[in-house]
Amino acid sequence: MRHLAVYCGSATPPDTAYIALARMVGDALARRGIGVVYGGGHRGLMGALADAALAAGGEVTGIIPRALVSAELAHSGLTRLEIVETMHERKARFTDLSDGFVTLPGGVGTMDELWEAVSWAQLGYHAKPVGILNHGGFFDGLLAFNAHMVATGFIRAEHAGILIARDTLDALLDAMATYRPHRAIFAMTAADL
């Protein structure tokens, strides 16, 4: 994996552990020679991730919608900043430019990015690993809900392994590196569905 899209919040929560996590991830990816592709912002976890990766000599590409640039949210010191018109274009560029996806704590936007990456993998728009760094159990509820969707049959058994969750970055990157793509819906016959 040469480039990873990292999904994370633009908020700065009161618990400083989340900012520390984003900094650790940015630093660690840069030290591994993995370029960061992210939302292009300078605030919250996004800014901490980018700043740490840049400080460690890493390559950081930001993808930001024009409306957020005008609100002065864009990071001005990135390796590359791409300005797009819509959130949909932003997510498509994340997919185009990355070899996989890592999700850190965040809010609605982060969840939107995560679930679209999973959905696109199910359908066959990409065959890249989709990871969650479940630091401090932040995603326990989401992972339980995902397991519930598998158990009830709303996620096919062959797609249950798309979402990869680990508690540490090293374990997550190792699992993502060995990910074997599943059979996408596009490759299934009507009898399979």
Results as ranks from 00 to 15, higher is better:
residue 161 G to W: 02
residue 83 I to E: 08
residue 81 L to S: 00
residue 104 L to Y: 14
residue 97 L to G: 05
residue 98 S to V: 06
residue 153 G to P: 02
residue 146 N to Q: 03
residue 118 V to F: 09
residue 105 P to N: 14
residue 76 S to M: 04
residue 151 A to Q: 09
residue 92 A to V: 13
residue 157 A to Y: 00
residue 159 H to F: 00
residue 119 S to Q: 00
residue 138 F to R: 05
residue 124 G to S: 09
residue 147 A to M: 03
residue 82 E to K: 07
residue 106 G to Q: 02
residue 120 W to C: 07
residue 93 R to F: 04
residue 99 D to K: 11
residue 173 L to T: 02
residue 120 W to T: 09
residue 96 D to Q: 15
residue 80 R to P: 01
residue 130 V to P: 07
residue 149 M to W: 00
residue 128 K to E: 05
residue 116 E to V: 01
residue 77 G to L: 05
residue 90 R to H: 02
residue 128 K to H: 10
residue 142 L to P: 03
residue 102 V to Y: 10
residue 97 L to M: 12
residue 157 A to L: 01
residue 82 E to D: 12
residue 110 T to A: 00
residue 152 T to F: 00
residue 92 A to K: 14
residue 163 L to Q: 09
residue 171 A to T: 09
residue 124 G to C: 09
residue 116 E to Y: 01
residue 99 D to H: 14
residue 91 K to V: 06
residue 154 F to C: 01
residue 142 L to N: 08
residue 97 L to T: 05
residue 88 H to D: 10
residue 78 L to H: 03
residue 89 E to W: 09
residue 98 S to M: 10
residue 164 I to S: 08
residue 126 H to Y: 12
residue 95 T to S: 12
residue 152 T to S: 08
residue 171 A to W: 07
residue 126 H to V: 11
residue 99 D to V: 13
residue 156 R to Q: 08
residue 101 F to S: 04
residue 161 G to H: 04
residue 113 E to Y: 06
residue 144 A to T: 15
residue 164 I to D: 04
residue 140 D to T: 11
residue 142 L to W: 07
residue 105 P to T: 10
residue 165 A to H: 06
residue 126 H to P: 14
residue 118 V to D: 08
residue 78 L to N: 03
residue 140 D to L: 12
residue 90 R to F: 03
residue 101 F to N: 06
residue 104 L to Q: 02
residue 153 G to C: 03
residue 143 L to K: 04
residue 153 G to V: 04
residue 158 E to T: 02
residue 146 N to K: 02
residue 128 K to C: 11
residue 158 E to N: 05
residue 93 R to A: 13
residue 109 G to M: 02
